[in-house]
Design a binder for these strands. Structure first.
Length: 294
RNA sequence: GGCGCCGUAGCCAAGUGGUAAGGCAGAAGUUUGCAAAACUUCCAUUCCCCGGUUCGAAUCCGGGCGGCGCCU
């Protein structure tokens, strides 16, 4: 009998600290054809290991992992790029008659992978240039002026931004327009490339009070296993707060400790709070995937 | 025991006679190429308690309770 597993790809997701990695590993240990495709934005970056709860070197060697440690801390990445690379990886694994499973908590990436994302053929340089251009324009003219100016050329985004007041979105709208001459609202209407495989979501859900406890003890465990040292070595190797990888929760807080601006205890508290807030956002997003049938 | 200062949401805190700023935390969300990001909305009928003055009190007065500091 052809089960759903012949046409669908298993996606193990859920909020941070809900046990995705353990779940995936225990599956892989029972099925040697399984290969893990990472869907966690922070695991992409080399050198960011402890604070991102990246599987250990041993585990990475034991079970095939894909899309882990593929970027340097200063490299920009995107959901579009993720979609492209993940799809190719998945196809490649399937072509070898292995069983890929997608594991991670970056719902935006998972959506880009399975639902697709408007294809935009721009080089990183072009993107970077137009982004800077948009940043400058917004800085000079101000949010409201640039938002108002969008009304005539990109009514879709005008409305979205009116609702959200999100400066990042405004910047994105203008950057896209500068780079392509096409309003982002129009580009988004083009049907995204569909993917030939369906996702089979397993949303791991943990009752909130328990998840909060797990987050707290995991932060402690990370600190106990040398997270601060890892942050120090990143800092010494020239990693700065401006770099994309530094969006990972905790590293900038630990940089504050290294620079003597904050006590380790305070950093620990802030990291725990930020992680909880992140987990909450993930849960909100993942409600769309169906109620956590783990 | 005396004197002084203080008591505003879970926390920090503004307001010192005209009808409770702000921040943090929390909750609910948004999310289509930076997403572990960025953003939106909600969150004190009431200011430690009791009484008084006043058209009107978190704000003034008296008493009580609690905290802090100094003195003895």
């Amino acid at each position: 009998m052809k089960s759903i597993s012949d046409t669908a790809i298993l996606v193990i997701t859920g909020p941070t600290a809900s046990g995705k990695t353990e779940r995936a590993l225990s599956m892989a240990r029972n099925d040697s054809t399984i290969e893990i495709v990472n869907a966690d934005a922070s695991l992409l970056y080399r050198g960011f290991d402890i604070g991102t709860a990246k599987p250990s070197k041993e585990v990475l060697a034991e079970v095939p992992h894909h899309l882990v440690d593929i970027l340097d801390p200063n490299e920009q990445f995107s959901a579009g790029e993720y979609s492209l690379r993940a799809r190719n990886t998945l196809r490649e694994i399937l072509a070898r008659n292995k069983t890929p499973i997608v594991v991670g908590g970056t719902a935006f990436y998972i959506d880009a992978l399975f639902r697709g994302i408007a294809s935009i053929t721009l080089t990183k340089e072009e993107m970077e240039r137009s982004r800077r251009q948009a940043q400058e324009a917004i800085q000079q003219e101000g949010f409201d002026v640039m938002h108002e100016r969008l009304k005539a050329i990109d009514p879709e985004l005008y409305l979205q931004i009116q609702r959200e007041r999100n400066p990042i979105r405004l910047e994105r709208a203008w950057a896209h327009y500068y780079a392509t001459g096409e309003p982002l609202g129009e580009t988004r209407k083009q049907l995204p490339d569909s993917f030939e495989y369906q996702p089979d979501y397993r949303v791991l859900s943990v009752p909130r009070p328990e998840l909060w406890k797990r987050i707290e003890s995991r932060v402690d465990a990370m600190l106990a296993s040398g997270w601060l040292k890892e942050a120090r070595s990143l800092s010494q190797r020239g990693v700065t707060r401006k770099m994309p990888a530094m969006r990972a929760i905790g590293y900038s807080e630990l940089f504050d400790v290294i620079e003597g601006k904050q006590s380790l205890d305070k950093a620990r508290e802030l990291i725990t709070i930020r992680t909880r807030q992140y987990a909450k956002r993930q849960v909100t997003w993942m409600k769309r995937y169906g109620d956590g049938k783990a």
